[in-house]
Structures are given as structure tokens and as C-alpha cells.
Design a protein around this nucleic acid. Structure first.
Lengths: 214, 214
DNA sequence: GTCTATAGCTTGATAGAC
DNA sequence: GTCTATCAAGCTATAGAC
């Protein structure tokens, strides 16, 4: 059936793009991984880049809906006050870490692609901006409300640090395992979640007043 | 002359790997960019992967020497006390941000490669570990001395967040420019340096005592 | 060290039978 | 929707003349 074939191709593409990147995988390898005829990838998705976009889009929609929902909930709870910073950071990261952790292999692959794209000079500016900037702007607005006396400039840079720390977590290099002599495990995303949220909150908080703490 | 040709190829490879990644560039494109004969890349460096390693190695040595130097200086100044955390973080990041900022195009390209590799599941675990883990271990030792009551586990995760925040800065996607409506400029690494060091220091500091602040 | 020439393969994409 | 067959182009890598 058509829908099944499309899904098979999307899943295979997701897996291979995750481990080798956009240029490191051929359409042929994808169809072999999917167990379908080589001509079908082009038939269903057109150019290779279109297939990549389809992979990105499939989960971005689900994800962004969940994250907006969590942000709105936390805004509503705090009303009419600004929401606590830590809750905003949690709303930003929770769905990502949770899906990557417990969503199955597909989600794990998806986030590994995100990690690569976010750090890719050619694709990062285009793709991340396209799929995630509207959401980022909503979060920045909430953060600005939580830290009303901070310089907006400082807060954008903090967001940038958050983005980097978060996406490296998804990259799937197990560098921290070796580095910590097995004390930490890169795939233990509960451990990340526990630490990332207060870490980032503390970083943002030094810009609470517009006079730098430095 | 032989040495010049090798340098031409290394520079060209560095530039192209930086913008398109390892798999996004062919040996042919590299030699064309370098303005030399297509066969010379193989003659001087052998396989494509060897050329990549040569690109990585060339600047890693310079860089790591500088960073170790800065760390040793700051350990000596503090003796016999442990060094202030903020100085350690600065020693870790200073040479990188400085070279990327003022070292010319080659260094900028180099760091863009680092950003990609650090987030690449296949290459990140191998290459970063190979070139940078010995240095990372030295820094972790110093950080542990500066925060003696923290759990080592927490500190490794903080290091991981630092690594992610730092490398995204090098990636050369100008996402923050759009996101901030031009308020921030991704290539203004002085602005990053000013903010990254206290941001990360504050993040580490919440784990000062082994009872989590969360 | 440099260059020409080329072997042997894989690539993205399509045309046309079923 | 699926499959076979195929195209032109690009790829890594090397062998051998200069």
C-alpha cells in the first residue's frame, strides 16, 4: 500500500540521515534500508532534499504543538504574573528530552538529525529557522516577561547557549561516557533533564538586572 | 613546491568541509578550490579520511598547547588554593573564541568543522575524543578542585552543556541574527565571550554542594 | 612533485512496461 | 504504485609519462 511504503522510506531515511548526515547517505541506501524498490523514493518524494524536508516536518509538527501547549499551561498558571523562569525552560526542553528518551528509535534518530542540522552552517540557518523559529520567538517573549529588567540582547545569547547545550545532548556521540569513565551515560536523558533545567535557569538568572554580574 | 601545495590543499579542504561537512565535499572539489591538479590530493594525503584528519590535526596542536598553558597559569596563580572556577572556564574557552574571532578565515572554518563533528554521531565520538579528551580530562580535574564538594557526575554533565553551548557558537549558522531581529550578531564573538563565561560559571556553581539546588 | 588519462564504481533521477 | 532498465554525471583512487 502507498502509505506504508512512504512510511517505510521516511523511517529508513530518518535512521540513515541521523547517523551519516544529509550528504553521507544516498537515495539508494535509503531504499535498500527500507526494503523497497530504488525508484520509489523519487516517485513518492521527488528530489533528495524534498525527502529530507519531509523527514524533518513529520515530527516537528507534533513536537511544536506539545511545547506550545506546555508553555501556554505555564503562562496560564502564573496569570496575571509572569511565569517562573524555570518552568519556561522546562516547557522548552521537556517534550524534546521526553520524546527522545521514551519515544522509540524513530524519535531518537530524529533528534540526532536536529543536533547535526543545528550545527550545520549551510542547513542550520535555513532549516532550523524554518521549523523552529516561530516557536523560539514565543518562548523568548515569555522569558522576557520573566526577566523584565534584563537586556534583550543578553537573553538571546542565553537562548543560544541553551540551544547548543540541548542539541549536543541529542547528538548521540557517547563522548561523555568515555570522558567520565562510565560515570555518566549519554543516553540517560533523565539525568540530563534533572541537571539541564536548573543549569540553564541559573545561567539566565545572572542577567536578571541589566547591570552585568561579571 | 611541495609544502605550498600541501598547504593549498589543506586550506581548501578546511574551507569546504566547514560549509558542507565531510560527506558533502568531494576530493575533486577540494583540488579545484585549491587550484591544483586533482591527483595531488591523493598523492599528498592518501584517502579522503586521512586528509580530513590532517585538517583536524594541524590546528588542534596549536590550540591545545595554548589552552593548557592558560590553565597552568591560572593553577599557578592560585597556588596552593584551588583556582577560581570562572578562570578555569575562561582558560577553556578563551583561545577558541579568540582564534575564531581574530585568527582569520582558516581558523573560522576550522571551528565550524569542530561544531559539526562535535554533534556528529559517527565522527564525534571518535574524532573529538581523539583530539580533545586528554585536554578535557585536565580541565575536569581542575574543575573538581574548584568545586570539591560537588558530585563528579554533575560536573561531567555541566562540562557537556559547556561543550554544546560553545560549539554551537562556532557553527556559523546565523540563526541568532534573525531570531533577535538583528540585535545580536553571530560573528560577534566578543559578545559571546563576555556572556558565555559567567553563564557557564553560574550553571556549574549550583552544584557547588552535593545537595542539588533543584 | 606534477600532470594526463582512465579504471571501476556509485550517484540522483527518469522513462516506460506492468 | 511498483518494478526493470538505463542515463549522464560525478565519485575515489591509481598507474604511468614527464
Amino acid at each position: 500500500m502507498a502509505l506504508d511504503t512512504k512510511t517505510l522510506i521516511l523511517d529508513a531515511a530518518e535512521k540513515l540521515f541521523a547517523t551519516r548526515g544529509f550528504y553521507g547517505v544516498s537515495m539508494r541506501q535509503i531504499t535498500i534500508e527500507a526494503g523497497v524498490d530504488p525508484a520509489l523514493a523519487n516517485y513518492h518524494f521527488g528530489k533528495k532534499r524534498n525527502l529530507f524536508d519531509a523527514v524533518m516536518l513529520r515530527r516537528a509538527e507534533v513536537l511544536n504543538r506539545e511545547r506550545i501547549q506546555m508553555l501556554d499551561d505555564c503562562l496560564r498558571r502564573a496569570k496575571p504574573n509572569p511565569p517562573p523562569l524555570e518552568e519556561i525552560i522546562d516547557a522548552f526542553t521537556h517534550a524534546l528530552l521526553n520524546r527522545s528518551n521514551k519515544g522509540g528509535a524513530g524519535w531518537k534518530h530524529y533528534f540526532a538529525i536536529i543536533a547535526q542540522i543545528n550545527n550545520h552552517p549551510e542547513l542550520g540557518g535555513v532549516i532550523m529557522t524554518q521549523y523552529f523559529d516561530p516557536l523560539a520567538k514565543k518562548f523568548m517573549k515569555a522569558i522576557t516577561r520573566a526577566l523584565p529588567d534584563a537586556q534583550p540582547e543578553d537573553l538571546y545569547w542565553c537562548y543560544h547557549f541553551l540551544s547548543g547545550a540541548l542539541t549536543l545532548t541529542f547528538s548521540g556521540t557517547n563522548r561523555i561516557n568515555n570522558l567520565s569513565d562510565g560515570l555518566c551515560n549519554a543516553s540517560d536523558l533523565d539525568a540530563v533533564h534533572e541537571r539541564l533545567v536548573p543549569f540553564i535557569t541559573a545561567g539566565f538568572s545572572i542577567f536578571k538586572s541589566s547591570v552585568s554580574q561579571r
